[in-house]
């Protein structure tokens, strides 16, 4: 059976072959794993993130399941490159996320997920995590 790390490598390699967006090309598989691990470490409760992530996934219109693309757009939301995200200490990353979330509420970038009015950044975070964990 493939380990999770192996699976992710395969997935990313596949994406590069099929030619994803140019911006994602700088996305190194090793970075990807580090990013995934770091993202996972931000939350305490896997079930919770899965709950919101899956609920979002099931809402119309159809959502992408392209993990790198979702990670990329999450990082864009919090204004960090992959390298910065990996290097930055966890409290600072959390502060970035917190700022992005508050900004979302100020600018109306919100999403109704199963009745909860959430910031698009937090929804994206949960979505990414639910996709990562599903692998």
């Amino acid at each position: 059976m493939q380990t999770r790390r192996q699976f992710l490598f395969t997935l990313i390699a596949g994406l590069f072959v099929s030619g994803t967006e140019a911006s994602l090309k700088s996305f190194q598989p090793s970075d990807y794993v580090d990013i995934s691990n770091k993202l996972s470490s931000l939350v305490t409760n896997k079930n919770s993130a899965l709950f919101i992530g899956k609920a979002y996934q099931s809402l119309p219109p159809q959502k992408t399941t392209d993990i790198p693309q979702e990670i990329f757009s999450l990082l864009q939301r919090i204004n960090l490159t992959q390298k910065e995200f990996i290097k930055l200490e966890k409290p600072l990353v959390l502060q970035k996320i917190k700022n992005a979330i508050e900004q979302d509420f100020h600018t109306g970038n919100v999403e109704l997920v199963n009745g909860w009015l959430l910031s698009k950044t937090e929804v994206k975070l949960c979505h990414v995590l639910s996709l990562i964990w599903a692998t």
């Binding site: 931000l42 939350v43 305490t44 409760n45 919770s48 919101i52 199963n114 009745g115």
Partner: peptide, 13 residues
Amino acid sequence: ANVAYKSLFHTNN
């Protein structure tokens, strides 16, 4: 949903 949301993030930050 409520309980799920409540415990979403680490409590040590």
